[in-house]
Design a protein around this nucleic acid. Structure first.
Lengths: 210, 210
DNA sequence: ACTCGTTTCAAACAAGTGTTTAAATCAAGA
DNA sequence: TCTTGATTTAAACACTTGTTTGAAACGAGT
């Protein structure tokens, strides 16, 4: 077993189990036996169960945030160069599309998206902050950009609508993972179409007259 | 201590702790000591921790569902009587408004709304089903009504948009409960205005051209 | 071949988990 | 007042939790 194979196996196993069973409902024994590593390996390599969660989130969220941030900055600087307002649709797409595309990027990414889709409303403040700390600068930048794109919208209203969109997005991120969705509530659109529909929906809600 | 005071104290304590700490992160010892009842009382009165969760949810969700169902049925029958299509806005309001108003109806209701706001995307299938089983007939009826109200909308699209709305709604239901929301992400609108904004947002998204 | 820092391992640790038990207590009905 | 059923209680049950320990195994550098 090569140098950090163990670390990766733990990260992969944790990602899967934290997403599918929940953080508090996942024991280190279940985790380490699924990852086929020794029980003590988690504390040796990560320090604690909570630090492991942090590592699981950072591993994928930092790259994803970099992609989203870059897309948003590009839109904003190009708008400034061409002396027109940034497009709200472009900004929304820059935030939403990479996130949902990320699901099919690698095995385990689906679990990861599921995990962070739930993080924003998790009852455990530690879990929430672990996620928020990494994502809130990005959301604030998005808010800033959207208020440039929609200058007629009152800031409180824009903020509320952005929250609604985060809610819809979280919901979509957690969909498709439940093994047996109840009839009538199952999603019938495939991933790409669902993303497009979410964008249409979010943009219409965002631009609604007050 | 009168006859079923104990039962109510347990229900109240469980509602609060399940909502604020999460189901799996709440121990029966923490629960019973907060409710000031004996540890064994939970198993005596409810049978198990899971059955207690079911009771916590049913206590408030059954009445709430009755209110929402009645409002929806009234709208649909009146539309049928007057030979016009039901209003999508009325239907949405019938579902959303009682839910969010319910938060201020009684002490503990805020915790309850928080709890079920998270239930739909909970990783634990038992928790999810406990909630879905009670709410999915209502959502299916709402879907039925909305497809009458918006006959031009493809059913898969309507279903997707309804899911988006459920996501926004869940998000709002879980808001305002986090003790210290991070700056820039805190809701600045009060409850009533937030409900109105959600309705405007949801309706615009629902009626967006495909 | 031998050392040295890193990593793995089985075992144990103290504390906490949901649940059960049997005796004690209570509130009424006869 | 005595009895009977429902409720409360402290204690114990069997088991799981995250974390720590100290010895064993490993792998590269000399």
């Amino acid at each position: 077993m090569s140098h950090s194979d163990t670390k990766i196996r733990i990260l992969d196993g944790a990602e899967q189990l934290f997403a599918r069973e929940g953080f508090h409902n996942t024991s280190l024994r279940a985790l380490t036996s699924q990852a086929e590593v020794n029980l003590a390996a988690v504390n040796y390599h990560f320090g604690s169960k909570e630090a492991l969660l942090q590592a699981v989130i950072e591993r994928r969220l930092l790259p994803l945030n970099a992609i989203r941030a870059e897309k948003i900055e590009t839109i904003l600087t190009q708008a400034k160069q061409n002396l027109h307002l940034p497009s709200a649709e472009d900004l929304l797409r820059a935030f939403i599309e990479p996130t949902l595309e990320f699901r099919s990027s690698s095995p385990g990414a689906q679990d990861f998206i599921n995990l962070i889709g739930r993080a924003l409303i998790d009852p455990d403040e530690t879990i929430r902050n672990c996620f928020l700390q990494l994502v809130s600068p990005l959301i604030q930048r998005l808010f800033q950009g959207l208020s440039e794109a929609l200058p007629h919208l009152a800031p409180e209203v824009l903020l509320a609508r952005l929250q609604f969109i985060m809610g819809s997005m979280s919901h979509v991120m957690c969909m498709g993972s439940h093994s047996a969705p109840p009839p009538g509530l199952a999603p019938s659109l495939e991933a790409k179409a669902l993303t497009d529909q979410l964008l249409i929906f979010a943009l219409a809600g965002l631009e609604a007259p007050e």
